[in-house]
Nucleic acid binder design. Structure first.
Lengths: 145, 145
DNA sequence: TATCTTTTTGAGATGGCTTATCAATTTCAA
DNA sequence: TTGAAATTGATAAGCCATCTCAAAAAGATA
């Protein structure tokens, strides 16, 4: 049962759709299934990937749907270079990125201590954190040479 | 002596220019002086600001020059919304941002402990950090109500 | 100072990514 | 099944940033 694999996320999406008077469509189901197989992907890349099996899926629909996933908390948009990367954040807690400026390689990590310090900084300034973004840019071991 | 106020940064720029066979021009001086009065600004905003006194300063020149400042370590580019914000980092160490998702207010902060932990994470993954970006999104005390 | 090479500038064209438009189609509640 | 409301696909449009190139400026040299 291929669809069952992502049943949980599918429900997250349906719940979000229900709350906002949006509809569950073939395209949204299709794009979600494909998206969940990725760690992160651009709209363009997803367009080409899906074009192999569904040639008539429009690029605009991909963009709209990925943005919808962001609203639903399934994806998270992140600028890298000139493009927007949509990160899959459904199957794990919040994570941050190590990004190689040489080859674009991305390593994900999580660090509770850092998050704790962030909370401190925020409350010291009267802020309540909703989300955060931490990106470390540098060279990976391969690109350093 | 108005120009003397930013003498130090002007020297940083000149040093960078010298190292890269670039020239010191009226425009670069002008843009630097204006830029140093800001915490952060977009190329477009700077264009309009400077247009009041120098109507013939081209937008392309602003972009080129702000990117030059980034190379020289005087500025730092940061995507916010659909535009690029150029942060003034000349008069202080690296700083990060607390951003209110309600009103857009930005509070800058610095935290050595966090930076130290970042270094650890990076070296653990074989990375050499060149720069980083930490943005905490949330509600400021005013917007929380 | 005059000369000459190299870099920079300005204006507009160009390019790349993302969103807007809108008629045709699909969803889904009644 | 029907009808109101949302969605889709194709493409146009928008926006931000960079590129192009002839004219101007910088700065080294004589």
């Amino acid at each position: 049962m291929a669809a069952g694999k992502f049943a949980k996320e599918m429900n997250v999406l349906k719940e979000h759709l229900g709350k906002h008077q949006l509809k569950f469509t073939r395209q949204r189901e299709l794009i979600l299934t494909a998206f969940l197989r990725q760690e992160h992907i651009t709209a363009e890349a997803m367009y080409h990937q899906l074009a192999k099996t569904d040639p008539h899926l429009g690029l605009a629909t991909i963009y709209r749907t990925l943005n919808l996933f962001c609203d639903a908390g399934i994806a998270q948009a992140r600028h890298f270079g000139s493009q927007t990367q949509y990160d899959n954040v459904s199957h794990k807690g919040h994570h941050d990125h190590l990004i190689c400026t040489g080859c674009g390689k991305i390593v994900e990590f999580e660090n509770c201590e850092i998050e704790k310090l962030q909370e401190e900084v925020a409350s010291r300034n009267g802020f309540t954190i909703q989300t955060h973004r931490l990106e470390l840019y540098g060279l990976c071991s391969r690109c350093r040479h």
